[in-house]
Write a protein that binds this DNA or RNA. Sequence first.
RNA 1: GGGCGGUUAGCUCAGUUGGUUAGAGCGUCUGAUUUACAUUCAGAAGGUCGGGGGUUCGAGUCCUCCACCGCCCACCA
Length: 957
Amino acid sequence: MPGLSPQYNPKDVEERLYRQWETAGYFHADADSSRAPYTIVIPPPNVTGILHMGHALNNTIQDILIRCKRMQGFNALWIPGTDHAGIATQNVVEKMLASEGKRRQDLGREAFVQRVWQWKEQYGNTIIYQLKRLGSSCDWRRSRFTMDEGLSDAVTEIFIELYNQGLIYRGSYIINWCPRCQTALSDEEAPRQETQGKLYSIKYPLMGHEGARGKGQGARVDWKSRAPCLLSPVPAFIEVATTRPETMLGDTAIAVHPKDKRYKALVGRFALLPLVNRKLPIIADERIDRSFGTGAVKVTPAHDPLDFQLGMKHDLKFIDVMTDDGHMAGHDEVPAAYRGLDRFECRSKLVVDLERERFLGKIEEYTHNVGHCYRCQTVIEPRLSPQWFVKMKPLAEPAIRAVKEGKIRFSPKRWTKVYLNWMENIQDWCISRQIWWGHRLPVWYCKNCTQGQGVGDEGQGKSTSHAPRPAPRSPDSRVIVTRQKPERCPSCGGSQLVQDEDVLDTWFSSWLWPFSTLGWPKKAPDLGYFYPTNTLVTAQEIIFFWVARMIMAGYFCMGKPPFTRVYIHGTVRDITGKKMSKSLGNIIDPLEIIDKYGTDALRYTLVTATAIGQDIFLSEERFVAGRNFANKLWNATRFVLAQVTDGQCSVVSEKERPSTSHRSLVTDRRSVPDRWILSRLQRTIQRVTASLDECLFNDAANALYDFLWHDVCDWYLEIAKVQLAQTADSRQQTADLLVYVLEASLRLLHPIMPFVTEELWQHLWDGGQGRNVPAHSPHSIMVAEWPKVNRKLIDEEAEALFEQFKAVVGAIRNTRAELNVPNDRKTPVVLLISKNPSIRCFLDKHKALLQTLAVSTAAVLKPEEFKIQKDAIVAIVSNVEVVIPLGGFMDDKARQRLQQRVEELTKHLAQTDARLQDPQFTDKAPADIVEQNKQRRQELQETLTRFSNYLAALQST
RNA sequence: GGGCGGUUAGCUCAGUUGGUUAGAGCGUCUGAUUUACAUUCAGAAGGUCGGGGGUUCGAGUCCUCCACCGCCCACCA
């Protein structure tokens, strides 16, 4: 066998084949109006990314789709690329700097960004190389990066367009602030940690009550003995709880639930802020939890996310009481005694002061989740900060409609609801980030115009000593939004213009990905041809971050959806159901799996583990099945090649073969097993094609596995061995058929297991030293034609007969095994008795197969030709009785077996009888079901009779 | 608190529109090697389909309640 070792070794083929494909240009697609496009855009992995199982799954699925469509004749384009991943990438580079003892501030912005670019050039392609090892057939010539020139233009373009339409505005927002690093942090960078803290109750005097006249007055109230708000009709205090007493200096209201009977009367009245004597309105809001604490909450809009929202809704004052470094601010709203104190010092001092003035209620130990800086572990401070926003509601409308009208379909369907629910409650999108790596906003401020107004000075170094009242959605004439840096300020003519310090959220470039990669905002021919793309393959985690926003951007910029179908795959988990993560140490590294078992094994196993939309539980053993499958194919092909090396095989793929010029596959002279395997192949083609169309990847993989392993290898190959040893004609037919079936199967399997199928396919052509290769045949399975169903080859009769045959073989094998007949000993005579003449004829004709497959001699009789033998054992397979005279093997076991079988049959017959005698059933069940039962009853009855007779005969001895 | 998913053999999971003896792979046990493949082949054992109730002639499948596991979103004053 030329060229094929007894074992498939992925390392010998993968790299070589991938290079072949890439060199041949099979991955590349150009706009071509004579063919239909099929387009996928890759979810761009982070440049900092290292291939993990999630990537492996995600890209395997995309590659399966794209390879399948390519073979089906579509002009298939898979656009790859990477995401600049703002914060993640900045962090990586900052860590490198840290090891040199430097901070990014030491370099300055420009040098730092330069440094990140350097890093990107050097390491940013790691993930690309890894995707190639997965076999991904992306059009690498079109690879894009979210910060390359064209994509940056796209970002600027949409920003300006949104701004001009009034959909981008500047407003205040609560962010996570690290007072030590003096930087804003995303939620991901400020992970919440369970922290032991204290919950302080503070009593705020109510105005219009004696206790509210001023500090000190409260001392006269006997507040210790009772909960004033709960029991007194005119309480002196309203009591609230907080974990951060220092924020009370920024309180501007007190909130209660509108339906809370305890406080209903107080809504609309005022309380006084202890120690400060600021007048606080008491407001009602449904977001207040009546059951928490006292049910009343102090509202600090500048220092708490919920309070911020309350502040916006109820039009409250926003008072920022801290500085950038976490000290109390120096402005007038903060009493002099606390100005400049560290926030925690201030907390202690306040507690002491409140206690002294008798404003303090109980203090409880309290465990809660507090955000900490991922880098320095400092407790983060929620803080008010000016940010840029996109107004989402108008953008969401067409995106909601598209999904409702089915222009974009989710599979599994259930994500539709999740998507719609989120979209219908969409919040404005904060798009500015206080980091250096990313797209700068096309926004400039004139230093002259904005002097002393705290506008041009945002970003890192902002110091909000004043109490800014957020002005959402108010266009600001001092802001200049334009593509290029303006020469002069349009209002004052000044030339001192500074660009906004912030960069845009990473997703602000990714949401343009489906069209920015095709050339938008330029009018590229590719755009008209490849857009909208077809299927988006992604994980559920980014439906909101990415998928929904792409749909909105697609409609906004292109007026069309970015894709027509969204396939959401599951999350890859370890065998105990935990997410794979480094910190848990439960990672299975796809690259290690590739090294150990091969890429095809990895892909096969991932795909078979993917029940639609379900999470995937992986353990390393599962990859063994994939490796074994590849090896099985390898050896089956090895065997087939050994049969055709005489160069006589002339089967070629349908594409090259005019149907008249080859030996017809449809012929009466074909054996039943031949007809059967051909029929099974057609059904497999049907099933695999349909399954891939519906994204049922595991179904496609299972169908191929069952067909190739069980139908082809276990049965047909064994039968072929017999047929190959018969006449020359039979040998030729069988060899042809083997090649035909295998070749088509390889094409079907190619999208899932690209490497082993390509290698074997090429050998199949070359196996006869090149004689099988027509001059014009494709050199690669990648571009071979997808198999088509030949309905003429679907042969129900052959399928039925062959099932019968398998069952007979099974019955004989089973009996032999149970009776421990040694394997080298043929079962002397097997009598196959059937009243059905066509089955009798078939079995008689294929006795040779039975003899080999069931290690037996066989004879076929009509029932009347048979006399019950005392030393025989019987199995009845549907309408064939398998009678095995036992000779020396007869023992009690055989009798027990019969006995057991009779009991089972009796029970089953009784069940069927009961059903048939039930008038409800016969009246109401459909006729075919009733008929089916009657037939079953008939068969059972006959079988039982014969078994009983055998048994009686045996027992009479 | 809101939403979603899951519960079928020892393990991991299939199970089409309800149709009558519930399947596969792995694992276990028994047997097989002058073999395409031991990364193999043949055979066996193993399940009251999470629990209760309902609809139906008929429920793993549909409805309802409950339990447990997991995920997402919000909140944690």
